[in-house]
Simulated scan of single mutants.
Amino acid sequence: MDPLERVTWALRRTELAVQALKEQRLRSLDMAVAHYALLISVHSEPGLTGAELARRLNVTPQAVASLVARLEGRGQIERREHPRHRHVQELHLTDAGRAALRAADEVIDGVERQIVDSLGPDAGAQLRALLDQVAEAVREG
């Protein structure tokens, strides 16, 4: 099979195109996709540590530390001491972080609508189901 005809290549091309569109649209908020991913992760699981975030986002702890420092500098993230482990810092959104996340969610929702509108609701739901199946298949190894 031609490598460019593989499903995995189609997934990669699609991911790159979606990421580029999200980066372009989030730029109006002075936000990168990586910042959005961090904000939504901390929103979903308040109290995550940097190491936990690195695993969830599939990036290095150093990359997370840099992102956290930038968002902390913007007043969107705050570090709090872990209740049982005083050397561990938990991450939490601030009010400014929640506001930034709401604004970014509106932008990302527009990207989602653009994709689903071009496919139609039935095909959009089918694509979502197929992508869930792909994720499950690769998790099973």
Rank of each mutant, 00 (worst) to 15 (best):
H85S: 11
G47T: 00
V88I: 15
P3I: 09
N58K: 15
D132A: 06
E45C: 09
R98K: 14
L119D: 04
E78C: 11
V33K: 10
R98D: 10
V68E: 15
S28A: 15
P46A: 12
T49G: 07
R74F: 04
V88S: 12
E112C: 00
W9V: 06
T94L: 09
L127Y: 11
K22D: 08
Q24R: 05
S118R: 01
V33P: 04
A137M: 02
G75F: 07
A65K: 03
E140L: 08
L131Y: 06
D117F: 15
V111T: 01
G110T: 06
P46Q: 06
T60I: 06
Q89T: 14
G97S: 07
Q114R: 09
H92E: 14
A129C: 15
G47P: 04
V18K: 00
R128D: 13
V18E: 03
T14D: 05
D2V: 07
D109H: 05
R86Q: 07
L131T: 05
L127H: 07
V64Y: 05
T49L: 02
V107D: 03
R74S: 12
Q133T: 12
A20I: 01
V18W: 01
A104P: 11
A135Y: 09
E72Q: 05
R113P: 03
Q19S: 06
H82F: 00
E72T: 06
L16G: 05
S44D: 14
V107Q: 08
Q114N: 11
A103F: 09
D109V: 02
N58Y: 01
Q133S: 11
V7S: 08
R25N: 09
A20C: 04
E78G: 11
I108H: 11
D132P: 02
A123M: 01
I77V: 02
I108K: 11
L29R: 15
R102K: 13
S66G: 14
G124I: 02
Y36S: 03
L26N: 03
Q19H: 03
D30P: 02
A69E: 15
T94Q: 10
P121D: 11
D95A: 03
V7K: 13
R79H: 13
E5G: 13
G50D: 14
A17R: 00
A137S: 12
H43C: 10
P83G: 00
H43V: 07
V88M: 09
